[in-house]
Nucleic acid binder design. Sequence first.
DNA 1: ATGTCTTTGTGAACGCGTGCACAAAGATTG
DNA 2: CAATCTTTGTGCACGCGTTCACAAAGACAT
Lengths: 252, 252
Amino acid sequence: MATGRTHRPATRSRGIPEATVARLPLYLRALTALSERSVPTVSSEELAAAAGVNSAKLRKDFSYLGSYGTRGVGYDVEYLVYQISRELGLTQDWPVVIVGIGNLGAALANYGGFASRGFRVAALIDADPAMAGKPVAGISVQHTDELERIIDDNGVSIGVIATPAGAAQQVCDRLVAAGITSILNFAPTVLSVPEGVDVRKVDLSIELQILAFHEQRKAGEGEAAEDRLPPPPATKSDRKGPDGDLPAVMPA
Amino acid sequence: MATGRTHRPATRSRGIPEATVARLPLYLRALTALSERSVPTVSSEELAAAAGVNSAKLRKDFSYLGSYGTRGVGYDVEYLVYQISRELGLTQDWPVVIVGIGNLGAALANYGGFASRGFRVAALIDADPAMAGKPVAGISVQHTDELERIIDDNGVSIGVIATPAGAAQQVCDRLVAAGITSILNFAPTVLSVPEGVDVRKVDLSIELQILAFHEQRKAGEGEAAEDRLPPPPATKSDRKGPDGDLPAVMPA
DNA sequence: ATGTCTTTGTGAACGCGTGCACAAAGATTG
DNA sequence: CAATCTTTGTGCACGCGTTCACAAAGACAT
């Protein structure tokens, strides 16, 4: 519980800063591309450019992992790929379950980026009985009733929630109760989870809203303020029309 | 997020901090839910809990927008919904084009969270001629050839890229050339864009990798180090020729 | 009106992340 | 072996974001 409280006590991992961890996958991708081209080594400058970050930042990031570079030369691509993969835990197999096989869930199931990095879709779960048995991305969808058994049988520790917002918390609770300790949430809701469970959120509409903010700023650059605040703190009786509210009719 | 270079020195546009902007959509969602339940006012404490953040942070965030609260009472829900919507630019219509109508693109087209907040899918574009004319989410898919015309005709300024990684940069370039100034990129690639164009990235696999990192940490809590580094930093003279030796980890 | 109680708005301290700038390390050349 | 050149690794300073803690503001009761 405690939604806000004890959010992320600390990744005090006695080591890698959270910001660095978030960039490691970026470096890994760039390195993998170099590896495929059989490039033996890269300088921090080149790799940084490929990953879209500052070279000093990249070097500092790598310094948290250890001194894997050679001064005057750069970093050994293959070795670095291995080190980062190991650090991220991608050298082992991570069975994952996706709950909510709607448009998004299906897209995720088909997404190559998952399977390609140590993640294995162990099961697709949906609450709709009509979905049960239907093959999606080559995997037969199973009913929610099987959720606990599936997780237990496969030793799954990572779950992906792609259900409508209304069902997310309930699914989350079941996943946690079944032993899941990491959740990737695509439903537009704030999930409450007990301590020890990690939750990462991906919200498609939030990203667009942030873009809209900047877009609006860019557009109204020269123009001075023109949108004054019409109604003062409004006491009440201020029932406007259908603004930005939409029932819980998520896609799924 | 953008292509590193010419990032955005600061949205300090004499106003709202970037971190705050990123949270506004969160508050807006919580407020909308309250609005639907006809709740007249909320305290920072309650709203913060609903949004999953610290109440002090929330108050400071709102302070950047102005003093919309009433001490001893809280914030007027309706009024705040309006103010945040206006600040985010959601009171106006934002036509959006989605390029790349694969599994993900289709999911996005069907995603209710977009249309519900001022965003309107103006067009779905795909490079596959076979897709042209096919209806997705009630909209007929158009061929890439029409891209420039569509953007121009509809005055679109926000584009969503959901193509394979290989086509992303090319699509991006065309979008930018056509007048797009904000891009939401789902392709796992670093996009290069000219100054003035905003890019936000959503990478599904990166999120999973970050979770895996923490998961691994949690798992190996008690156990001491057990994963030693097999090959040393590979000393000099390691000019291995054509011995590719690709870990063959993954595609992209 | 006065007092009490609630909740906002914010000053200030703190910690994290970023980027600069440079010394150290190693390769490379003569 | 010495000199030079390249590139890493990092100390340091700075700025942003978070959080605490509290005074000010207003509602509400008496």
